[in-house]
Computed example of a mutant assay.
Amino acid sequence: MSSVLYVCVRPERSAADAEHRSFRRGLGVGSLDRLDLLHASLETVEWQQYEGFVIGGSPFNVTDAEKDEYQRAVEHDLERIARRALDGDATALFTCYGIGVVTRMLGGEVHTGQPEQASATSVQLTDAGIGDPLFGPGAPTMSVFTAHKESARETPPGAVLLATNDACTVQAYRVGERLYATQFHPEASPQDFADRMAVYRASGYFDPRDYERTERAILDASVDGHDLLARFPELLRG
Rank of each mutant, 00 (worst) to 15 (best):
E79G: 07
R237V: 14
D166N: 03
L37D: 12
G26Y: 03
F23E: 10
A198P: 06
L236M: 05
D33A: 03
T103C: 00
Q48I: 09
G108W: 00
A194C: 11
L86E: 13
P157Q: 02
E116A: 14
V45Q: 02
A40R: 13
L32I: 01
E19A: 05
I218V: 05
Y205A: 05
R201L: 06
P137I: 12
A167Q: 05
A40K: 13
Y205P: 05
Q49R: 04
L228C: 11
S119C: 15
P11N: 04
R153H: 03
L106W: 04
E212D: 14
Q124S: 13
H148E: 02
R84E: 01
S3P: 12
G98C: 08
Y50A: 01
H226W: 07
H76I: 13
A202Y: 14
D64M: 08
T112F: 01
S189M: 05
E109S: 09
M105S: 05
R80M: 12
D166W: 02
F60M: 15
D220S: 15
R104I: 05
F232E: 06
D87N: 11
V7K: 00
L106R: 05
V199T: 08
A82D: 04
H185A: 09
L134K: 14
E109G: 00
V74H: 14
P190N: 01
E43T: 11
W47V: 01
G158L: 02
L35Y: 02
H185C: 12
V54Q: 12
E69S: 15
S203A: 14
P156M: 00
Y97T: 14
G138N: 07
G129E: 03
